[in-house]
Design a protein around this nucleic acid. Structure first.
Lengths: 205, 205
DNA sequence: GGATAAAGTTTACAATGTAAACATTGTTCG
DNA sequence: CGAACAATGTTTACATTGTAAACTTTATCC
């Protein structure tokens, strides 16, 4: 049985998770560049080659991290949607949360959406990603069920909503838009503005 | 006078531009990762330290490249808008071109919007970037002038349009959406779909 | 025509990702 | 119980990279 004593002996006990955790912290602090496997090893207090017993290479570790990121995004979205009354409020809330989650941790966001990682081919990521999509599609379907939206494929409408919130998030994250990431008021205002117009756009005229 | 003879002597003649050109090609071929200054130097046939006479460091070269990217995007957008009749067609055309330009060269796109570079503080980039924005704002203003759109700040409406096309582009570029980058038909269809709904959204009901 | 600046080169170094060989610990089966 | 074996760490080694420093060659200017 794996001892929880975390004795600083030869075997760590739960190195894989410790590495992921440290990596996540470093990612937040120094961004996706300036992120070295050796630093991660150092942070955990283990030799620089030790991570290779748990991850084939740097990319594999990063991919595992990415999975966590998508899972958190999914959870945040699902939470946001859960507490809302109608599909309209849901979409606005989702947009707000998407923006917040994504701007709050730029390192993770870049990892997830920056194309650093070959996400294709990774089943875990593909799965979690489609879970994120499903939340958005779910919002749209709810609206369609009430007859509030234009009669189109749910996926098509969801894609527009997703693109809008995602684009806004990326523009902010890449500093293309000059927005203070900590100014939640401004963030919420932007989210509402965009979500509102998307709602106009997908609603029956 | 700077000789154009390009003799392979000690002095290259126009190394700065040669480096940028080679760098752009490498960026396309190998992406923003796997992009080494030394490779660039090699490609031009010059010692690995030579680039430092023209660029303070790797980041500076990349920033110069980024500038080119934004300029091309601006030009492409301006061109697309120029040949259109009304603001509606302009927006659709702009979306299509934005998508195309951005998906066609993922390396450059990631460089421009991937947050690899500290774009803030670079006057050149800031300028070119706001030129891009101005094209979009221009489209909106044209629509507002005809009284076609909701009475809001042009910048607000432009932001929605920008977010939508940008988000769609980024989702495709990051392989989050499973779209063949070469399938221009599908790309155009997506662009039209998104632009159409944005138009619905910003139009007077 | 010689001083000086500009543009290249060579040499050097520290950091990184990763492979290979080795060491230590936990586990399993006679 | 103890010996084989697998799992998990460590050390050593190497090629690649970014970048600094010292040196060399060419162009320019009085």
């Amino acid at each position: 049985m794996a001892g929880l004593k975390t004795t600083d002996h030869y075997h760590h006990g739960d190195l894989r998770n410790a590495l992921l955790q440290a990596a996540e912290r470093l990612l937040q602090e120094r961004g996706v560049g300036g992120f070295s496997l050796r630093d991660v090893a150092r942070a955990v207090g283990v030799s620089h080659a030790a991570p290779y017993r748990h991850f084939r290479d740097k990319g594999t570790l990063l991919r595992a991290l990415t999975g966590r990121g998508f899972e958190r995004l999914r959870a945040a979205l699902a939470d946001a949607v859960a507490g809302q009354r109608g599909p309209e409020q849901s979409l606005i809330a989702a947009t707000r949360v998407y923006l917040q989650t994504t701007v709050q941790d730029p390192g993770m966001t870049r990892l997830m959406f920056g194309g650093v990682i070959p996400a294709q081919g990774d089943d875990d990521i593909t799965l979690r990603l489609s879970s994120v999509r499903e939340v958005l599609v779910g919002i749209i379907k709810a609206g369609l069920a009430v007859g509030a939206y234009r009669d189109r494929e749910p996926r098509e409408l969801a894609l527009v909503a997703w693109s809008s919130m995602h684009g806004l998030a990326m523009l902010i994250d890449s500093a293309t838009l000059d927005v203070e990431p900590d100014d939640t008021e401004q963030l919420d205002a932007l989210a509402r503005s965009v979500a509102q117009i998307v709602l106009y756009g997908i609603s029956r005229s």
